[in-house]
Design a protein around this nucleic acid. Structure first.
Length: 368
DNA sequence: GAGTTTGAAACT
DNA sequence: CAGTTTCAAACTC
């Protein structure tokens, strides 16, 4: 039932769980010693033999057990903490365990299988004990499980589900996590004091998580780290969604519309004009008895109306050019409906609506 | 302690 | 390579 290893003869003296390893051949498995010897994989991050039922600094209670409790994997897959840590199962609650000296062949085969998928699945030391061929499988990748980073979506990397958090590491550029809070000192568990106890911290964290989980908007679609990166945050964050950039316009980015910059410029100009008009009117209305001011008011108003109409006319012209131009070019090249087409249609629809509004605005100004 | 949630690993 | 399934740990009640 348990995965206890009968490792008396081959285990090291210091730690009976760690077994001597010589050479691991890919296929067929050839051992130099007549005694079955297993690879020695040093633990990566977890000394599960010392695992106890305890409450950590954050008030999180660890599960009371020694070793793994694998049921399906025979402790020969990375699901198994013992196997992943490079140690044989001892004092585990696992079922049908093959991660022991008795199932040496199966264990080595499983390791080769794992290394075939990810040559860095085990530690660097472990790789050193393997053959050159096995090590060459992925020469460019970093050793260690954590080098690839996490991909947490919901826990904001603040729970032990997160490998980085569990290993007491900050998430890095390698991570693909969403809404990560395991990124800087500001988000680390604070130093506890009378006013900042583990319980207080835990309540705050749980509240944040609750808020996060109850948020109606699909925030997980927003790459938090990307925003932080864009803001020039010193945090070490992972790049997220591949934003498509064509050109930057006054701090905004257009993905598709080449002339949107001009449109934005006009909008800003119109906005400034409107602001000026409002300021003029405000100044005038503060002096209701000033005859000169009243005259200035009517002059200014008519001039502004004229400018507004001209400005709107230019906008409409621009939109028409843009709209027709896009349509023409699309007729020539369009072969199928794709994502780009959809975005273009959306932008076109917005521009059309905006144009109609402008026309109505001009009409009302002319009538008044 | 049972049930649920979570994210990595494995698979397709 | 992306989506799905499987798995076991973490977590909740």
């Amino acid at each position: 039932m348990t995965g206890n290893a009968d490792s008396g003869k081959i285990a090291t003296e210091k730690d009976p769980r760690k077994l001597v390893f010589t050479k691991l051949e890919v296929s067929p498995v050839v051992r130099e010693s007549p005694v079955k010897e297993l690879p020695l994989f040093p633990p990566i991050s977890r000394e599960h033999s010392e695992a106890k039922d305890k409450t950590d600094e954050e008030g999180i209670t660890s599960r009371k057990h020694k070793g793994c409790r694998c049921k399906q994997s025979k402790c020969l897959k990375l699901y198994c903490d013992c196997f992943a840590s490079g140690v044989v199962c001892t004092d585990c609650d696992c079922v049908d365990c093959h991660n022991n000296s008795e199932k040496c062949d199966a264990r080595e085969a499983a390791m080769v299988n794992v290394l075939g998928r990810n040559p860095n699945a085990f530690s660097e030391k472990a790789l050193g004990s393997l053959t050159d061929n096995q090590c060459k499988a992925a020469p460019d990748t970093k050793p260690g499980l954590l080098s690839r980073g996490c991909k947490c979506k919901r826990t904001r990397c603040l729970k032990k589900y997160c490998e980085c958090f569990q290993a007491n590491l900050l998430c890095s550029d390698n991570c693909k996590c969403i809404n990560c809070k395991n990124v800087s000192e500001a988000f680390q568990p604070p130093a506890f004091s009378a006013h900042n106890s583990p319980q207080v911290y835990r309540r705050r964290r749980d509240r944040e998580l609750t808020e996060w989980n109850s948020c109606p908007a699909p925030l997980f679609s927003i790459p938090d780290n990307s925003i932080q990166n864009a803001l020039g945050s010193p945090m070490s964050c992972s790049p997220k969604l591949p934003y498509r950039k064509k050109r930057s316009l006054m701090g905004y980015t257009s993905t598709l519309l080449p002339d949107l910059g001009d449109l934005c410029s006009l909008l800003v100009a119109a906005s400034e004009s409107a602001t000026t008009t409002a300021e003029d009117q405000n100044r005038i209305f503060t002096k209701p008895d000033d005859k000169e001011a009243i005259e200035l008011s009517s002059e200014s108003e008519s001039r502004n109306v004229e400018e507004e109409i001209q400005s709107c006319g230019r906008l409409i012209e621009l939109i028409d050019v843009q709209y027709n131009g896009e349509e023409d070019s699309q007729c020539k090249t369009k072969t199928s409906v794709n994502e780009t087409d959809i975005y273009m249609e959306q932008e076109r629809a917005v521009l059309e609506t905006f144009r109609d509004c402008l026309q109505k605005f001009i009409k009302s100004r002319l009538e008044s």
